[in-house]
Nucleic acid binder design. Structure first.
Lengths: 189, 189
DNA sequence: TGCGAAACGGAGGATACCTCCGTATCTTTT
DNA sequence: AAAAGATACGGAGGTATCCTCCGTTTCGCA
């Protein structure tokens, strides 16, 4: 969100730079991993390093911002699948798409974890949004009987993350492992 | 292993320094994470930075060496549980102990992953040992019918790792998530 | 158009990495 | 036991990246 929270709108140049930085950071992270020198990101965006640090005081702040886009699209996906599929199938489909999209974003899963563990404010917002979306899909799956009732939203998110990390460099195994996991979530033991 | 592979034994001072470095690295990783400055490790061990780099040319090499100890004890644990428990239960017990011990070693799970992905030689040795141990336990569980036959050793290791990373900072959820996972490995769908 | 606020940029101090080579220590030989 | 040769040590210093600080520039409002 390129406006200072609740205050007057950003100046035009500031907003422009913020957006260019975000876009270039996303590209740079994908190309060179999340440890790419921040000076490179600044150069790609055509701004000074000082400007980068003003907008994103830490590396994690920049990673969070990039990450936020992905959360948004996962949230949208959850609602979309909820409408498109029968209640018993949407959760599995969403988890599949989560894990697949994670595979394309190298290193960002570790960032996600760092963010989760840090209880950051940025994450808190994403957190609520994604919990709400996944909560909806999960509840329907449980009503439909395809997921046992004692599974929580946190469980789903955590397991998704776990699987993403594990198969980051072994995408061919992702499907099998996810299906084991889904079986586990289904069975009433 | 503080002897140069297959060649003449290390000089006494070299061996001493190697061992001190390893011990201090283990401590420093636990206290400050695996990103602790290597100069600190060298200082703690009472050697120069050059000595550290001679024994461990990269950070990963040092992490691998520390990690190796843990693999050894997990391998031992697998054989131990195989003897102590009925065949259907040893695998679950081993996975439980893996995940629990991982929780105590912050950051090292990420190292494990880096090592796995790198196909390093050091890992290759550990790899064989642990695959053999887990393979034994897994095969018995499959014979006993508590694990479906299409689960592989890689699956078990990968899932273990995933869970360890995911619950590194949420140990209270570890048990539940693992039990979901085990249910998934058991059910024939 | 002019002025104050906001943002920019990059120099530079600090930290960490890692190599290189003169010095010190150990081991073997006589 | 002493010397020679092999091996290992240590840390100075070049390089890379981080991140702050502040003089300069740009923007927006009146």
């Amino acid at each position: 969100m390129p406006t200072s929270a609740g205050e007057r709108p950003m100046r035009a140049d500031a907003r422009r730079n913020y957006e260019r930085l975000l876009a270039e950071a996303k590209g740079a992270f994908l190309e060179h991993g999340v440890d790419v020198p921040l000076e490179d990101v600044a150069r790609r965006a055509g701004v000074g390093i000082g400007t980068l640090y003003r907008h994103f005081p830490t590396r994690l702040a920049l990673q969070e911002a990039v990450y936020r886009d992905q959360v948004d699209s996962l949230v949208a996906k959850a609602y979309e699948l909820d409408e498109a599929l029968p209640p018993g199938e949407a959760l599995a489909a969403w988890m599949r798409s989560f894990v697949e999209s994670a595979a394309a974003r190298r290193g960002l899963m570790q960032t996600l974890k760092a963010v989760i563990d840090k209880h950051s404010e940025v994450f808190a917002r994403c957190h609520d949004e994604i919990r709400e979306a996944v909560g909806l899909v999960l509840a329907r799956a449980q009503e439909a009987g395809t997921v046992r009732p004692d599974v929580t939203v946190s469980d789903v998110l955590r397991l998704n993350h776990a699987l993403s990390v594990a198969t980051e460099h072994a995408p061919q195994d992702t499907g099998r492992l996810l299906s084991f996991l889904l079986d586990g979530l289904r069975s009433q033991s």
